[in-house]
Nucleic acid binder design. Structure first.
Lengths: 330, 330
DNA sequence: TAAAGTAATGACAGCGTTGACGGGAAGTAG
DNA sequence: CTACTTCCCGTCAACGCTGTCATTACTTTA
């Protein structure tokens, strides 16, 4: 059914190779035959078969992007950054989500290599660290966003979460808050608790003591933020401010405060993280730490491209600086 | 670098075909050789090359899903539905966004067929209608969500937008609203104005006149909803209710009302559409028309699967019934 | 005028896999 | 003991394309 080069070649009275040359814009061909072949291609509706091409060239011009979930606009923004950058360099981005299922994540990675993706960008989840190390062993260019695994095949890109957290907490302290709680992600293993380290560092830097039970953990979603805030505020009613793991949790906190009759920011200031689009649709608008998500995605792609062209060169991790965005919630 | 079947075959002392049989779980093989081959596969870290396989079998087990944007959670939910259903049937879903660029959308479709996607699911945009018709001509199974083009290669899945709109407006009328405005999508060509038809039908059914300039158009985003509402409410201060094209526009309307000093729902009731996750994070929570987005995605995939197995059978469009969700904004 | 390009095309092999078919060994039946 | 199965495995071609090299037909240069 599908039209192949052979069909075109037969019809145009040239060799398959000549058709190939036309399709690939190779110069060593006369204008006359080029036109003739082009005409036949058009008439027959020929489309090159990338699979076959990829099989021989060993390059697919496809890169894979694996993220945990698309629920959080944070990830869709990153995806957009990657896709846009990829597009500019004639790469097609294959976006796949594991839906928080580590098993599925593995499956996706395997499929990606089986289909010959030229490179892969992974947003690291707590689950994948161990697996990634071993995966990098048998796979080519890999860029990990917010990853921890050191490996020559892996390039790293991240935002300075710790610095961002300091920004947030410093600000709260500058606004005379002394009892500041934190909403953390239960799923973060110790090594990934950058925000918590920033939170603690800021408190200490201002002579405040860090109380571990002022950090409440839950899923990094709206519901998790809601539940965590209720628990935190019942245990520590004296808190006047909360620093949240991300905007999702901050929004949950907002909801909890409303239910508990605490005005935001008067009775309880709230600072989020990521500066997703959600930050400006809730009331009060979220004061939050902005991460340039598109840039993160873009840089991830560029790093990948770099690795694609120069497989042996190793770059230091790229770290993007976050920025505090002051709005209404704190 | 990559390990091929040939390598495994050599190492195991069997033919390539035998390795192939093991990899594909074919029965006609003795347990002894199977174990031996398996051992070598493991030792060498062999991974089958899907590209090569696809080239000969003419099936990739990949389906493409093309949506306009991932900004609106509406689309990510649909994507999840498709991916989940695909997973169950051993299909990998390739999600691609055109970012509202019709040219890019075309490019994506072409790439998808070039890479041999077994089928494609497209969420129709106003731009693609004409192109899709012609595309369907030279491409196999295609499922279009909310599409209009009739073609034997195309299956249709949609939600009953018109019915949903009637639900919303009927409800507003039952709450004694008589002056009801609507926020519409500028980009919808007449044929796709299901919601507007539902809106008009409901008004008429209740003996109310439809005033065309009570329908204000803008981009179907938060900002668009905001701007449209400001225009609408200055032109028609008498309106006591607004039916919005989707939740995004409804959220924009919420913001506009707040700025204009109109309380929601007391001074101006607002009904959204889609029931995305955003509906419950804004204040007041959005009364909206629920569309089962995951189910929409799931059904789209199932339709595709059906077409894959029985290319000639044609099914009538599948239409999902929406449902009114009453919350706080109306 | 012969030697040496140069430009345009074709022949051929191979990318890694599978489908179709073939054949030998072992088992079963007559 | 022959004939017919069944089981296991191998050979070969092909999927649609590109890289390499050979070939032909002209030019150009000394």
């Amino acid at each position: 059914m599908p039209v192949t080069m052979r069909d075109v070649a037969l019809q145009a009275g040239v060799s398959i190779k000549t058709v190939s040359r036309v399709v690939n814009h190779q110069p060593e061909i006369s204008d006359a035959t080029r036109q003739r072949v082009l005409a036949v291609i058009d008439a027959l509706g020929y489309r090159p078969n990338f699979l076959a091409r990829a099989l021989v060239t060993q390059r697919t011009q496809i890169i894979g992007l694996v993220v945990v979930t698309l629920d959080n606009p944070y990830f869709t923004d990153i995806a957009r950054g990657v896709q846009a950058a990829g597009r500019e360099h004639a790469y097609l981005t294959f976006l796949a989500t594991s839906d928080e299922d580590p098993h599925e994540e593995q499956h996706i990675l395997e499929s990606l290599v089986a289909y010959g993706a030229d490179g892969i960008i992974v947003y690291a989840t707590s689950f994948s660290d161990g697996y990634l190390a071993q995966f990098a062993e048998h796979f080519r260019p890999l860029v990990v966003i917010h990853g921890l695994v050191e490996h020559p095949n892996i390039s790293h890109v991240r935002a300075d979460f710790e610095g961002g957290a300091r920004l947030a907490v410093d600000y709260l302290i500058s606004r005379r808050h002394r009892a500041i709680g934190m909403l953390a992600n239960v799923e973060s293993p110790p090594a990934r608790r950058w925000r918590e380290r920033g939170y603690a560092a800021s408190l200490r830097a201002h002579g405040l003591t860090v109380q571990p039970d002022c950090i409440e953990r839950d899923l990094a979603k709206i519901d998790g933020g809601y539940a965590a805030t209720r628990r935190l505020l019942t245990r520590h009613p004296e808190l006047t401010a909360i620093f949240a793991y991300n905007d999702m949790m901050a929004i949950g906190a907002l909801k909890a405060c409303r239910e508990l009759g605490r005005r935001v920011p008067e009775d309880c200031a709230i600072v989020g993280f990521d500066d997703t689009d959600l930050a400006t649709i809730v009331i009060p608008n979220l004061t939050t730490v902005r991460v340039d998500k598109r840039e993160l995605g873009r840089q991830a792609f560029l790093r990948l491209l770099e690795k694609l062209h120069h497989p042996d060169v190793t770059y230091p991790p790229l770290v993007l600086p976050p920025e505090l965005v002051i709005r209404e919630s704190a």
